[in-house]
């Protein structure tokens, strides 16, 4: 089990984690979902002992990460988003270096490298210098270094970021296999499809805080009924959006209506059942409100995020992209 309790971390004036509580059950794939800058990488770096929190505690099974960091490192396999490979060394040499750093004997390392090369389909290129590897090869080698010592807990930071579809599915298959073998996997992602496809449970992070947690199906079901997106006009004015919102807030069978400013003041809400749509259409007309677009679908993880934060994950990504100081973050990540 992986557990974080009241973890806080700030980089200067920027608060990365605002008292994060998280519990990852054993033997499952747990997704940490959130836009870039939500605090996912910071949380993982704290778990991996690369970063000390300002406050709070962290455990890997019964090991207190802050009190016994070395013991924690032994239990953990870490696949970082930005860890470099030594371009001059071959993949096999990299794995042997890691074997020595985990104090494995040469025989055990050699055996594990053979196993992992077969499991991750690395045989054809493992003896080539790392500098010649594609993104997919690098990620597979990263995963192999994380798995070399057979850790019971595996932490992956954006494991498929930048990968082609084929490499992505191959990596997913490996993660599912590891889970079947009993490994507890915590992976961070801002990819809804990935989390939806892999995670037994997930936590959604926004601005360093947990905003929702549970199995994906449960989180989506909790939104209830049909997900409706209403656009009065292509670009609706604030006044009209507010009037429609007030109408929806008083309509029986409608829940959690929110105005999504980033999408031209589109209004998202959940309707108890599909028949309500016709009633709403009539009511909007009665109040002199036009309908540009009215769409309905089953709730998605993005809806869960939208309902909790008032913006979609993509909007959050775009908004963070303009406010993040990636250079300062890079400096903060440097030891």
């Amino acid at each position: 089990m992986i557990r974080l309790e009241g973890v806080r971390k700030s980089y200067g004036a920027v608060q990365a984690l605002a008292g994060l509580d998280l519990q990852v059950p054993s033997g499952c794939i747990y997704g940490l979902l959130g836009p870039n800058g939500a605090g996912k990488t910071t949380a993982l770096r704290i778990l991996c002992t690369l970063l000390a929190p300002d406050a709070g505690r962290a455990w890997l099974d019964d090991v207190d990460v802050l009190a016994e960091p070395r013991l924690a490192r032994r239990r953990l396999g870490h696949v970082a988003q930005d860890a470099a490979l030594d371009k001059i060394l071959s993949g096999r040499e990299m794995l042997h270096l890691h074997g020595a750093l985990y104090h494995l004997s040469r025989d055990i390392t050699r055996r594990r490298v053979v196993e992992l090369a077969a499991q991750l389909d690395m045989d054809a290129w493992l003896d080539r210098p790392c500098g010649t590897y594609s993104g997919g090869m690098r990620r597979r080698l990263d995963l192999a270094t994380g798995l070399l010592h057979r850790p019971p807990l595996l932490v992956l930071d954006e494991p498929t970021a930048g990968l082609d579809v084929e490499s992505r599915y191959a990596l997913w298959a490996v993660l599912r296999q590891l889970k079947a073998e009993g490994t507890t996997i915590l992976l961070s992602s801002h990819d809804l499809e990935e989390v939806n496809a892999l995670a037994d449970e997930l936590a959604i992070l926004d601005q360093g805080a947990l905003i929702a947690a549970g199995p994906p199906s449960q989180l989506k079901a909790a939104l209830g009924g049909e997900r409706i997106t209403l656009k009065l006009r292509e670009f609706t004015s604030d006044g009209e959006a507010s009037r429609a919102l007030a109408l929806l807030q008083h309509q029986a069978g409608v829940s959690q209506p929110v105005v999504n400013r980033a999408q031209g003041n589109a209004i998202s809400f959940f309707a108890r059942d599909a028949r309500l749509v016709e009633v709403l259409r009539q009511q909007l007309q009665d109040h002199g409100l036009p309908i540009f677009c009215l769409s309905q679908s089953q709730p998605s993880l993005d809806d869960v995020y939208l309902q909790a934060t008032g913006r979609t994950l993509m909007d959050a990504e775009l908004s963070m992209a303009t406010t993040r100081d990636t250079k300062a973050e890079q400096k903060a990540a440097m030891r």
Partner: peptide, 17 residues
């Protein structure tokens, strides 16, 4: 260079004695 390119972090995640 190991600090700058993140290789040092890779080493520090290992349970070095």
């Amino acid at each position: 260079f190991d600090r700058e390119f993140g290789f040092l972090n890779r080493l520090l995640v290992a349970p070095l004695r």
